Amino acid sequence: MKEKLTKALQALKQKTPLVHAITNVVTVNDCANSLLAVGASPAMCEAADEVFEFSQLAGSLYLNLGTLTKEQEMAAYLAIRGATLKGIPVILDPVACGAIPRKKATIERLGHFGRFTVIKGNLGEVKALAGLAARVRGVDSLDEGNDGLEACQSLARAYGCVVAATGKVDIVADGQRACLIENGTEMLTRITGAGCMAGALVAGFCGAYEDAFGATVAALLTMSLAGELAQETSGGELPGTFRAHLIDQLSLVDEALIEKRGRVQWL
Rank of each mutant, 00 (worst) to 15 (best):
H112T: 15
A128G: 08
R157P: 05
P94V: 03
G87K: 02
E53P: 12
V163R: 00
Y159T: 09
V51A: 01
D140S: 08
L142Q: 02
V118L: 00
P42E: 12
E125F: 01
G138A: 12
K103W: 06
L36V: 14
L155E: 01
F54R: 11
G148Y: 01
I80T: 08
A96H: 08
A47K: 10
C152N: 07
K120V: 07
I100L: 14
K70Y: 10
G160T: 03
T117M: 03
N122A: 13
I107V: 10
A156T: 00
Q153V: 11
A156M: 02
L149C: 01
T84P: 06
D93C: 09
C152G: 05
G121F: 09
G59I: 10
L85C: 05
E144I: 12
G111L: 07
G114T: 05
A76Y: 06
E150S: 10
V136N: 10
N146K: 06
D49G: 09
E50L: 09
A47L: 13
P42C: 11
A133W: 08
E125H: 08
E53G: 15
A156K: 01
Q56D: 10
A43H: 06
Q153W: 06
S55H: 03
V126T: 08
N122M: 12
G39N: 12
F116N: 02
I80K: 00
P94R: 03
E71S: 12
R109T: 15
K70H: 12
N146E: 15
S141E: 09
D93Q: 11
A105Q: 14
E144T: 15
A47W: 11
P101M: 03
T67S: 07
V118G: 01
A130K: 05
L68H: 09
A99R: 07
T67C: 03
Q56I: 07
G131M: 05
R102V: 14
V90K: 00
I107Q: 00
C152L: 06
K86C: 11
L36H: 14
F113A: 04
K86T: 12
G145S: 13
L61K: 01
L92G: 02
G111D: 06
S141D: 06
V139K: 03
L123D: 10
L149N: 00
V126I: 13
D49L: 07
A48S: 15
E125D: 09
L132M: 15
E125N: 05
F116R: 00
I91V: 14
S154K: 07
A76P: 04
E53A: 15
A37F: 09
C45F: 12
L68R: 07
L78K: 13
A164V: 08
L149F: 04
G145E: 04
L85M: 12
G124Y: 05
T117Q: 00
I80Q: 00
A130H: 04
